[in-house]
């Protein structure tokens, strides 16, 4: 079994090529095309982009650096996503356990869900203005990075992350294999034990799927939010600002960082939970 996994990972030449050769080839084509065009404001060479990426603390247009803006975006997403995870999982578990509650609340949520989270932005900005997280606790200005965390953004990230997490958790709880519940019941489990020892672990793989989708959605939504007028920080803001100033090397740097951070978050999430869920699809 282990052997099989290893060959699957690196043994196939197509996999190796997919991870290394194809990206490398694209870099080479990009470099040649960039040199040939010689219009760095349209297509900077990878070398120029790499140069930007190698200086993450350089301040651009008085708008902060790649690093500082990335950290601000990351903080916004982590806060909004955490709220979405906690509330999404809890409400999924609650609605999955109590039928009456589900029939009361699920229709409303189903009506709100099809709304793309980004369309909440103008509404959120109108309601929350530019209030920040410290404002919520009565602090006007905390002189920390938290002053860059606007409530409106948190709200939209929350909406984006909430629905995939909630839907998957609910579905996971509702589709627990009947035999597992019967097994516990015949061994004398109480209702609480069936919830903690059967429903929760059985639903975990789907909860994790929800978390990954939710995190992806949050990261997606924050970029749209940071490109709105009036925003003064964040990697999405820096990207727009750089584009307005024809600094395409910076734009591409931002794009790579956005993609890289998103992928890294997904990877970490998956790795930290894989041991609890890799039984899925292999149960007998």
């Amino acid at each position: 079994m282990k052997q099989l996994k290893n060959t699957e990972k690196w043994g196939q030449p197509s996999r190796l090529a997919g991870w290394l050769l194809v990206p490398l080839l694209m870099l080479v084509i990009w470099q040649i095309a960039g040199q040939h065009m010689n219009k760095p404001w349209l297509l900077p060479t990878p070398m120029r982009v790499a140069e930007q990426l190698c200086h993450p603390t350089r301040i651009h247009f008085n708008s902060g650096s790649l690093l500082s803006n990335s950290l601000i975006s990351l903080l916004r997403v982590l806060l909004g996503f955490s709220a979405a995870a906690v509330i999404g999982i809890l409400s999924g578990l609650l609605l999955g356990s109590f039928k009456t509650l589900r029939s009361l609340i699920e229709p409303t949520l189903e009506m709100i869900r099809p709304l793309c989270p980004v369309v909440w932005l103008p509404f959120a900005i109108a309601v929350f203005k530019l209030k920040t997280l410290p404002n919520l606790f009565g602090i006007r200005y905390s002189h920390t990075i938290f002053d860059q965390v606007q409530l409106g953004m948190l709200f939209v990230i929350f909406i984006g992350g909430f629905f995939p997490i909630f839907t998957n958790t609910l579905d996971g709880v509702l589709t627990v294999r009947q035999n597992f519940i019967l097994l516990a019941r015949t061994l004398g489990a109480s209702k609480g034990q069936i919830f903690y020892k059967i429903a929760l672990p059985a639903a975990l793989p789907q909860i994790v799927t929800g978390l990954r989708q939710g995190l992806g959605m949050s990261w997606f939504v924050i970029m749209a939010a940071e490109m709105m007028v009036g925003v003064q920080s964040g990697i999405g803001y820096l990207l727009m600002y750089a584009a307005d100033n024809a600094a395409m090397d910076l734009v591409i740097s931002c794009m790579l960082i956005i993609g890289g951070v998103g992928a890294a978050m997904m990877f970490l999430m998956r790795q930290s939970l894989i041991h609890h869920i890799n039984w899925k699809g292999r149960e007998f």
């Binding site: 097994l183 015949t186 061994l187 672990p201 059985a202 975990l204 609890h276 869920i277 007998f284």
Partner: peptide
């Protein structure tokens, strides 16, 4: 009472030891 099914009679997220100790 204990009940053994033909399929899905073990909890797939538990090891052998923890499955046996489940009851």
């Amino acid at each position: 009472l204990a009940y053994v099914f033909q399929h899905y009679t073990l909890l797939p997220w538990r090891t052998v030891l923890k499955n046996i100790a489940f009851g």
